[in-house]
Design a protein around this nucleic acid. Structure first.
Lengths: 185, 185
DNA sequence: GATCACATGTAAGAAGTTACATGATTCT
DNA sequence: AGAATCATGTAACTTCTTACATGTGATC
């Protein structure tokens, strides 16, 4: 039940989509928006070693005819760990400091949770982010620093960015409900 | 010239605004949107120790009559280090992976750089972020995964969030120019 | 024959997290 | 008197970064 680094979940999620070699994972991190993760061998291979040590991933044959290369896939325990992570409740802390993690969870979600859970996640996210936007606004109202200062403008950026996230969550939820025939709450 | 952790610059920026104790810094991190940084003593005090070791901050007397408490302020070398960080060019890498750092730089900027530099920063930022939004769109066009999947929707979040940042940058720049009587380019 | 892409690792060091540890002052 | 706040630190552990290190197979 211990907390794992985000990289571990990113790897589990990718391997659940498609077994790959470590090098394949590096290519994904180097060439897609998953590039928030480093593609350096010094981060990937130690992560693979600890996932294998904990029996969350295992070998699933060789890549092509290349010797020394191993296709990797999640074990049943690995999929269970992934699902637990995907199912965790959204906290204020995560909205504030780890919004990227919440979005990564969402990106992997439809392959491992049912449509109602995805819907619930988007609802919770929209709510939690809106709440945080209101907190930022309240802070801005009684904050120090002259209006027009860069400090003030930076705070406005935070508000604008989180507002965009809340809006996206509401729209994504509507789209999701439409294509999955869920009742409107 | 070596690269410092973001926390060091956050501390330098805050101490440049107002000399404070380590505990004061912890309070800022615990109670403002600067809370992306941990307020744990295990991160703050080692950071203060290395800044002092490198002579970027120094003591400036006691807080109130409390013994054992030290008000801290940046040295001239500390201010120079801060200004160098604030003046660095914006890279694609930073837009992609460290947008928070760019915003933190902006928040401290008006106290240390002139109005034209701030203006230039916002122009560069708007440009770099827009470029990245286009890259994300191009990726989305030829990306795998069915439309309506959570993976696809997460990608759309990225686009929406960066678009909001680009828009903010353009608006902030217009506002900045207005209040600083800079020519419109 | 050389270069690029595929492929996997290790070593040293820096930094952050969590938990522990201590003590003074102020408020109730 | 007890609790909360002010105040500063250390220790163990985990992780990431950067750099080094090696080797095969395919392409030009």
């Amino acid at each position: 039940m211990k907390r794992r680094p985000l990289l571990d979940y990113a790897i589990l999620g990718l391997l659940a989509q498609q077994p790959m070699t470590g090098y394949g994972l590096r290519r994904v991190f180097a060439s897609t928006p998953m590039g928030v993760f480093s593609d350096s061998p010094g981060s990937i291979y130690p992560a693979l070693a600890r996932l294998e040590r904990d029996r969350l991933i295992r070998s699933a044959g060789q890549s092509g005819a290349r010797q020394g290369s191993r296709l990797l896939e999640p074990t049943r325990a690995g999929l269970a760990t992934l699902r637990r992570w995907l199912s965790a409740k959204i906290t204020r802390e995560e909205v504030m400091r780890r919004i990227d993690e919440l979005l990564l969870r969402f990106a992997f979600m439809d392959r491992h949770l049912d449509a109602a859970s995805v819907d619930r996640f988007l609802g919770e996210l929209a709510g939690a982010v809106s709440t945080y936007v209101n907190e930022l606004r309240a802070f801005a109202r009684q904050a120090p620093g002259p209006p027009g200062s860069t400090g003030r403008l930076a705070l406005e950026h935070g508000i604008a960015a989180f507002r965009a996230t809340a809006q996206w969550a509401r729209r994504a939820r509507a789209a999701w409900r439409k294509s999955h025939a869920l009742a409107v709450s």
